[in-house]
Design a binder for these strands. Structure first.
Lengths: 135, 135
DNA sequence: GACCCATGCAATTTACAAAAGCCGAAGAAT
DNA sequence: ATTCTTCGGCTTTTGTAAATTGCATGGGTC
């Protein structure tokens, strides 16, 4: 529903992959250690990222993860939404507007505007933007 | 930390006051009933709103609340922040940036940008905007 | 086939949102 | 002055979601 540790860790993980040599397969243990993130938690997050194609998994010895596409093609919005589904600034936007009070409809209109402004920022920044800022 | 029921109810409450005849003192029970909000919860919220001067309280028989200033002078941001303090899009922005990892600093930079965009919307809309939309 | 690493689900702990309850204080009406 | 009404502040309960941990499973490499 909002920006939590899961999204934070997910972004860190993808950022880490983005800074590795191209083609290298990186295991969770390495990401977890370098970014100081609980490994099992990261595992769950990467399952989502894998399902949406942002990362690719490789099983077995010397397995791990690689990026599904180049980091300048991965927006922050994609990462967030593949981890937790559609982003809503408030719970009340999750429910359909049918039969709600006039005050609520008015508030929704406002919140939709606010949310739109936020999603615009989320979708206009890529993982590459973030890794570039690191230096 | 994010947009919760408390802020929702607070905005509804102030919107209701804004639509009442000027000078009328409105008790919580009336607001609660009309906006379908638990009265005791609303009471707690209005304490905060009162402390920050957005509403004025009047005790005793025929007591209640009035607006502290006209509804076109009350921004949504003021309402939110008087209820829950400074608005942060994510917990990690609440902590000082000292001694944090490069990845975290980079993420913070991004989140601050996103949050700024959101706060701009919050501060550029007033309660009057919302009540106007109701009709 | 032994070892490594991802997969998937279950269970747990922790934290905070949401709400209700209680008693006290202030003010108006009489 | 007494009584009634309404806010004030604190405490406690309840509910739900976040944040983690654990374990059994399965695919791959050597």
């Amino acid at each position: 529903m909002q920006f939590t540790k899961a999204e934070e860790y997910g972004i860190f993980g993808i950022m880490y992959l983005a800074t590795q040599p191209k083609g290298k397969v990186t295991p969770l243990s390495e990401i977890s250690e370098n970014q100081h993130v609980p490994e099992k938690f990261l595992a769950k997050i990467f399952q989502s990222l894998c399902r949406s194609g942002l990362v690719r998994s490789h099983r077995g010895v010397k397995g791990g993860f690689t990026l599904g596409k180049t980091s300048d093609k991965i927006t922050v919005k994609e990462v967030i939404e593949s981890i937790q589904g559609p982003y809503y600034i408030s719970k009340c936007l999750m429910e359909p507007p049918d039969g709600q009070s006039p005050a609520m409809l008015s508030l929704r209109k406002f919140l939709e505007r606010a949310q739109g402004s936020l999603l615009k920022v989320f979708s206009s920044h890529t993982i590459k933007d973030l890794t570039d800022w690191q230096d």
